[in-house]
């Protein structure tokens, strides 16, 4: 955050004192979770009140994802490692929003809050995927994301369960085409790119997503 000049600080204090009569809900000393919950108001505009995601606003479900991965992605958005590609329509919407988290404390607080939300299992929206074929294809994913899609932090592989399926599909497509993961700042995303390329066509992507969706149940 920007350094505040002394007299400006004085103004703030004066102003605060003037308002002291009005202040009933002082959150200055509130718990970090309170702050996270408060900041989440912003996210809920697109991601839903419980972080369940909203297809209308291209916002995936985020509730109950791992803290480390949420934090990492928020940082990527904020620092311009993700959501800067001109074809990443959803990413370009998310990037400005992440810039709203001005301090690391705020970023961590909101990630904490989102991680604490109960995970949701969303309905499948992609049709035509064959989960049995998908299981075979999933063999490749398994080495990093785990047999049950539970993720593996040391390999920077997030869990795959409790995601919205259209989000998974877009991301695989984005990795494949370099919309995501080709930015030099996105070192972990770069690892995913060759993996996504292994999925030869649309059908393969649908199959593997159908399988992943069965893991969430």
């Amino acid at each position: 955050m920007k350094r505040i000049g002394l007299w400006q600080y004085v103004l703030r204090v004066l102003c605060g004192t003037g308002l002291a009569l009005l202040v009933f809900s002082n959150t200055a000393n509130a718990e970090e979770n309170e702050r996270g919950k408060q900041l989440f108001e912003m996210c809920s505009q697109c991601h839903g009140l419980q972080g369940e995601g909203m297809a209308l606003s291209l916002a995936p479900s985020i509730a109950g994802l791992e803290l480390w991965s949420l934090e990492a992605q928020l940082r990527k958005f904020r620092d311009g490692a993700r959501g800067v590609h001109h074809e990443d329509i959803a990413g370009m919407r998310m990037r400005p929003m992440s810039m709203w988290l001005k301090t690391d404390e705020d970023l961590v607080a909101v990630a904490n809050y989102v991680a604490s939300l109960p995970a949701v299992t969303s309905e499948a929206t992609i049709e035509g995927g064959d989960a049995t074929k998908g299981k075979a294809l999933y063999g490749l994913c398994q080495s990093c994301h785990g047999a049950n899609g539970e993720g593996l932090q040391p390999l920077n592989a997030p869990k795959l369960t409790n995601h919205t399926d259209w989000y998974l599909k877009t991301q695989i497509y984005n990795f494949k085409t370099g919309i995501r993961g080709s930015n030099p700042k996105d070192t972990t995303g770069a690892l995913m790119r060759p993996m996504a390329m292994a999925l030869a066509n649309d059908q393969a992507i649908n199959d593997v997503i159908s399988y992943i969706m069965t893991l969430s149940k």
Partner: peptide, 10 residues
């Protein structure tokens, strides 16, 4: 431009 090349994959 890699992207332009791989666009037909969509």
């Amino acid at each position: 431009n890699l992207l332009l090349a791989s666009n037909e994959g969509r």
